[in-house]
């Protein structure tokens, strides 16, 4: 009696697992095919193209005349500009002090900078001309600058970026956009149609689109993917149990 009962529960469990597997397949199949095909795409894609850096060149630095350097200590003493970091940098071959006021843990985190001419000690506002020139210096493609925009986050090409950027658009066949941090003048990066195409596949793979309120964030911690991941996990585990049952029963012949 007991034995038969045990057998029955075992049979019941297995049939439940099979029913679950069938119904879960209906729930997850579309996303499963999206994961498999986008995964296959990441495997086969051209990783150089995906970087968006076809027309990117390294910025050249010039020798600076250190005798002419202004002492940034005066800046820190004089005004109410306190800084946690002062870096001697170059922009367009000229030396500047980059004063960091608020620095995030990572470069893309919300940060605040002041750019100061290292020879004169005058504050340099990063205007549209300078942003264009900085973008041009990093670009070696055939295009000309089509337009320049000041963009606020969220920025589609760099979703994780939390700072305002200058977006310099070039008129080439790849629609290259060059991004410059609006307060530090640092080159954030290049983006183009090839990169945007790959980004679209990442969006699909990470289910990184607005579904439950929040928009795309350039990551994979969202509610929709969590739900589908758990459903798919059960789908795969029930499949595994089914396969093991077939193996034990000698159905693989």
């Amino acid at each position: 009696m007991n034995k038969a009962n045990k057998k029955n529960t075992k049979y019941f469990m297995l049939s439940t697992i099979k029913t679950l597997h069938k119904w879960l397949s209906l729930l997850v199949f579309i996303q499963l095919f999206i994961w498999l095909s986008t995964g296959l795409f990441f495997n086969l894609m051209d990783h150089d193209k995906a970087s968006g850096n076809q027309y990117k060149q390294n910025l050249v630095s010039q020798d600076i005349d250190h005798q002419r350097l202004f002492d940034p200590k005066e800046l820190l003493l004089a005004s109410n500009t306190s800084a946690s970091e002062v870096a001697l940098i170059q922009r367009l071959g000229k030396p500047y002090y980059l004063l960091t006021h608020d620095k995030g843990l990572y470069k893309h985190f919300d940060s605040h900078f002041t750019l100061v001419d290292a020879y004169t000690g005058l504050i340099k506002k990063l205007d549209i001309e300078m942003a264009s020139a900085l973008a041009q210096a990093s670009y070696n493609g055939p295009g000309k600058i089509a337009n320049v925009l000041l963009v606020k986050p969220p920025i589609n090409d760099f979703l994780k970026e939390e700072n305002n950027l200058w977006q310099v658009n070039f008129s080439d066949e790849l629609h290259t956009s060059v991004y410059i941090n609006a307060s530090s003048g640092r080159l954030i990066g290049h983006s183009n149609e090839d990169k945007r195409f790959v980004d679209f596949f990442f969006m699909l793979h990470f289910m990184d689109y607005p579904l439950f309120g929040q928009g795309a964030v350039g990551g994979f911690n969202n509610l929709q993917i969590s739900i589908f991941a758990i459903l798919t996990l059960f789908f795969c585990l029930t499949g595994l149990i089914w396969t093991l049952e077939l193996l034990i029963k000698g159905r693989y012949k």
Binding site: W35, A229, T232
Partner: peptide
């Protein structure tokens, strides 16, 4: 894939 994917998204 499903175990590692679930871990990474959660």
């Amino acid at each position: 894939w499903s175990v590692s994917g679930t871990y990474m998204v959660l």
